[in-house]
Nucleic acid binder design. Structure first.
Lengths: 334, 334
DNA sequence: CTGAAAGCGCTTACAG
DNA sequence: CTGAAAGCGCTTACAG
């Protein structure tokens, strides 16, 4: 310890932590002596001991539900992570990635090593949630967390931050409605997550505002089978197709290519999520799409968590981060 | 504590940690009683206390040198991170992202909160290293770490894991040499990192094996200025251009487009690093390129670190992970 | 086979 | 203005 080189013990703690709020004042000489001793010895407080004594770690845990990252989500995850990392850095927090004891089959917070969450002051949770049970337990334990993605836990109000998928659906639908389309289709590739539901909700809202507008249900099979796509187009009579994300817009365009359906001449297509950085197989087609602010979502999640930790907020925090609508050439007047 | 529900105290620790290696044996009844008590109370050991007592955390710290991620490196970083995360999960480690106290100007391990490294059992370091001083200190302190990227610290031998950039340069050069090219150019966009040097070394090695082959120095200006590119091509007389990475191959092709130089008819171009997932502005051109195994590098780094922690290895560990050479249509016989 | 004690290295009231 | 004590919640030898 530096106490050998200096003279005190608790003094070291106070000096090195730089606390001035305390009633205790320390002479500049002592302070200097301690600092110098610590420096010459290369002394650094043991963080585990600090955490134990203080009961705080300045750590934010990050937990991803779901086994591995499908590529489409991968990028979203990465951008969110970047935002989380950046904001954590600003706020002087470190980020703890919870990866331990996670088998491919079940991703569980309370699996082996799950108590690692407790090392952190709070957590940011992401990814497809199978069952809300673990969240319920977390809430009951009084553990602070934010979900990236709108999640519901029956009987509780949890905090969440999400890209505004309702807005995405709404603006996508408004756009094609403005172009004169009335019968709109909607497809998604993922399972029917809250994020998909929200897009649909947005579409329905826009449709409700325009006379004669209608959201027509499309079978999932159209993404994988050109025959089904053909039949669905014929039977539904849609003239615009709204795709939930990267995967569904690609699958749709591939099927449409196979059928010789021209975009946008025969059918307008909108991507309600789109990663502009990714390889795009149709060079001439710049899809009309929605750009989601994933890294802002990450930043906001950190801010929300810290607000919760500091107790500067009460009641549930629900943030929808606005997205940006980009008009390309995959949509045309009816 | 579960000691209220159970009967013991240290027994709880032994039972819950599942240790059987100790000389101490505990009756199955006691064991069951403890487990049940812990379960009913929802008891989970405090990880900070465990770390302090055990002196181990099963945490791997991850530190990225360099202020923010340029997009080109971004993807590499992400893939490495994915590999690290996956292998850490397998090995039952969590990952600690060191982000705290990092200003844009200086990224320093020993900056505020730098002792957080000590929370982890060891670290994986990545990114452009300004000065090796901090690494030297780390070595002297006996702190175990692996660098992703070949780094030299004068006077010390440090562990590193890296994609085989020498092989990349070598295979790229062999390929165009095999096509009859003799005068080869090499450009890079980044600062002259070890990764760039290694590519060049590989090219030189290949050139040394073929009579008349020569690596011709190219000015950096060719990436930003078509005039300089034109002059350099004329004066150097190269017929093949090896580009270090994504950014330099894009910049080169853009300049060549401006000059009306046809690829590969007038000039063969090889990308010694390439991200196939990214948007590519030349649909007809599938570049001959090298695919780097970033996520394998991440996995290997974790393995190397754990080997170091377990003491199952002695002497420096230096791993070059093989990359894959992909022939496209940006190269043609001379 | 089990319990009581010491110790991990800090921080935080609390006396001097 | 500074020092000695207790405590954070575990684990690990060490007695019983």
């Amino acid at each position: 310890m530096a106490r050998l080189a200096g003279v005190s013990s608790a003094t070291v703690s106070i000096v090195l932590s730089g606390r001035t709020d305390t009633t205790i004042r320390i002479s500049p000489e002592t302070r200097a002596r301690v600092v110098q001793a610590a420096e010459s010895l290369g002394f650094m407080p043991n963080p585990a001991a600090q955490m134990l004594a203080q009961g705080r770690s300045r750590l934010i845990a990050l937990f991803y539900f779901g086994d591995t990252f499908p590529y489409e989500r991968e990028h979203q995850f990465y951008l969110s992570l970047l935002g989380i990392e950046r904001e954590a850095s600003r706020q002087d927090y470190n980020v703890l990635l919870i990866t331990r004891g996670q088998s491919a089959e079940k991703r569980s917070i309370y699996a082996a090593g799950g108590n690692m969450l407790r090392l952190a002051d709070g957590a940011i949770l992401m990814g497809p949630l199978e069952s809300p049970d673990e969240l319920a337990r977390l809430v009951e334990d009084g553990y602070p967390f934010i979900y990236i993605g709108r999640r519901q836990v029956p009987g509780y109000e949890i905090d969440w931050v999400v890209s505004d998928y309702i807005q995405a659906g709404y603006e996508g639908a408004r756009h094609v409605l403005g172009l004169g389309h009335r019968r709109l289709g909607f497809v998604w590739n993922d399972s029917r997550t809250e994020e998909v539901r929200d897009r649909q909700r947005g579409i329905e809202r826009a449709a409700a505002e325009v006379a004669g507008a209608e959201l027509v249900a499309m079978p999932q099979g159209i993404l994988t089978d050109a025959g089904q796509m053909e039949r669905a187009l014929r039977e539904s009579g849609i003239s615009a197709l709204l795709c939930a994300g990267q995967a569904s817009v690609r699958a749709s365009l591939t099927r449409l290519d196979e059928l010789g359906v021209r975009v946008p001449a025969d059918l307008s297509v909108v991507a309600l999520s789109f990663d502009e950085g990714r390889q795009w197989p149709w060079p001439a087609l710049r899809p009309t799409h929605v750009r989601h602010p994933e890294s802002l979502v990450g930043e906001r999640a950190v801010q929300a968590l810290i607000a919760r930790l500091d107790g500067t907020v009460e009641g549930p925090q629900h943030w929808r981060i606005p997205c940006e609508f980009v008009i390309g050439n995959s949509t045309a007047p009816r």
